[in-house]
Design a protein around this nucleic acid. Structure first.
Lengths: 112, 112
DNA sequence: TATGTTTATCGTAATATGACGATAAAGTCA
DNA sequence: TGACTTTATCGTCATATTACGATAAACATA
């Protein structure tokens, strides 16, 4: 059906810089999406979204049936992806949504 | 610190149906995000988005360096998540973006 | 019918993820 | 200081993912 690879001129106008930028966006979107790619992590985001902020122990209570260490792992993944932030308060850690990360994810998805 | 679990009244207004619906949305969003959680799959989506539609063999060419079987696996994951559709055309398969799936993902993320 | 083309699936190996309990680290408070 | 609380990290195991080559399935065509 399509015999000419440049039928849509999708390559001729792209510099290698453009390609690198798109590849970087691919990787960034994939990283963010992967972090969101587990129901428990989505649930944690929702809890933080509703409560504005939440200490780690409360999150563990909200995520029913999982060990504290498991929840801590999920929090780490969300934090490393830039979707949440954690602030130490005494012995506790107060987590909150990182709105910039969430916005970035929305922007990247809207650009697909 | 927090002794009353209903401090924010976040549960008292939720019926079990609501909770089930939110859990289902969590799972749906996680499934869609997980499918997007690999740079090659993001790239495939971008290719399909730019070219409107694309036969499998062309996608394999666009995803440089990966075996045809690997690309086929990625296509399967995207298809099962509802992010792309595939239509058989003779010996080829013509893939295109499933806009409904992409919209659904955007809606679910905007509701987090 | 026989041959070639295209794509999906199978089998397999390496690596990643998700879960747990145990424990370390860091702070609070008596 | 010593006991307690809270959270992160470690070690481990089971399972999932990613990649590959080989092959099967389905169609086109000589």
């Amino acid at each position: 059906m399509v015999t000419n690879k440049n039928k849509y001129n999708c390559c001729s106008e792209s510099s290698s810089d453009d390609i690198a930028a798109v590849r970087a966006a691919d990787a960034e979107l994939a990283t963010l999406a992967k972090a969101l790619g587990h129901p428990v992590r989505v649930h944690i985001l929702r809890v933080l979204s509703q409560k504005q902020s939440c200490i780690c122990g409360e999150i563990v209570e909200h995520v029913d049936g999982l060990a504290q260490s498991t929840v801590s792992q999920h929090l780490k993944i969300l934090k490393e992806a830039g979707l949440i932030r954690g602030e130490i308060e005494g012995t506790s850690v107060c987590y909150c949504i990182n709105l910039n990360g969430l916005k970035r994810l929305r922007v990247l998805i809207s650009n697909v």
